[in-house]
Design a protein around this nucleic acid. Structure first.
Length: 274
DNA sequence: GCCCAGGAATGTA
DNA sequence: TACATTCATGGG
């Protein structure tokens, strides 16, 4: 189960591949800072992980309280719902040939339960953008607008994702972050989150009340922020797959339809990683 | 200089 | 509903 190894927790009863998750496009603040060593910033939290190649287990440098209080949920390792291990088997068994291949290539992928506000802003930034630039823009935004913290275990200083208040407080200088035309989208998102509360935004329709949030960003939020596994974000890559593999018409059978979002991640990861 | 990037808003018919 | 245009920025 979970064993303390010095200052790390050993997590070995879940199927998890840090490198695939890092390269899955669902998150933008996981970094492999040296081979097999990963730093992870999520919201205002920081943790480091180690994973031997070709292992399904990881070492996570945090205490049991931080595991139970945050990272267990972040990695979706609480067993209160259908597990990704079960969904993986369903995809391989009940998916068509293409989905089966995507799933097998993506074994170890998990749908993270990410900080909601960070997810919202990150995917607003993602529109008509590329992943390296999304990553650097989020880093610049964090460095300019949040107060740095120091992780107790690793003693590393990091910049949390800024709050809506922090962003609005300095909105005049947002131009220097390189957000481009998305500045007004982000300002509106911050203002609406402050006035309505982040938990107001629990559906695609409510999310689309935010200026600059459409179907794709809303579905990313539902999948990666709300962990709504039936959300199915359609971007240019998924669109290309639907055209190429399915002749323009795509649907899932009733067995795996509730987990369309997981299938989407399998497809997206496979498409972008050979 | 040109082209593209995990889209969305706006205008037109 | 369907389609075209435009939007700011940085990297190749």
């Amino acid at each position: 189960m979970k064993v303390n190894v010095n200052d790390a927790i050993f997590i070995d009863n879940f199927d998890i591949d840090m490198r695939k998750i890092m390269n899955s496009g669902q998150c933008f603040r996981i970094k492999e800072y040296q081979p097999n060593y990963y730093s992870i910033i999520s919201g205002n939290k920081y943790v480091e992980a180690f994973q031997y190649p070709n292992e399904t287990s990881i070492y996570l440098r945090c205490d049991i309280d931080n595991w139970r209080g945050y990272w267990q949920n972040y990695f979706d390792c609480s067993d209160e719902s259908t597990s990704i291990e079960d969904i993986y088997k369903l995809a391989v068994e009940y998916g068509d040939g293409y989905i089966k291949r995507c799933a097998e290539k993506s074994k170890g992928m998990r749908i993270l339960r990410q900080d909601k506000f960070e997810t919202l802003i990150s995917f607003i930034i993602s529109q008509r953008n590329n992943i390296p630039k999304i990553t650097s823009t989020i880093r610049r935004l964090s460095e300019a607008y949040s107060t740095p913290l120091t992780d107790k275990i690793t003693e590393k200083t990091y910049y949390p994702f800024p709050s809506a208040e922090e962003i609005l407080k300095g909105k005049e200088t947002l131009k220097s972050v390189g957000l481009g035309y998305r500045i007004e989208y982000i300002v509106d998102a911050c203002e609406q989150v402050l006035s309505k509360g982040i938990d107001y935004f629990d559906s695609v329709d409510k999310l689309k009340e935010i200026y600059g949030v459409g179907d794709k960003v809303a579905n990313c939020y539902m999948l990666f922020g709300m962990h709504d596994l039936q959300a199915f974000p359609i971007d240019v890559h998924i669109e290309r797959i639907i055209t190429r593999e399915y002749g323009g018409r795509f649907s899932l059978n009733d067995t795996i339809k509730p987990y369309a979002g997981v299938i989407q991640q399998y497809m997206f990861y496979s498409e972008k990683n050979i």
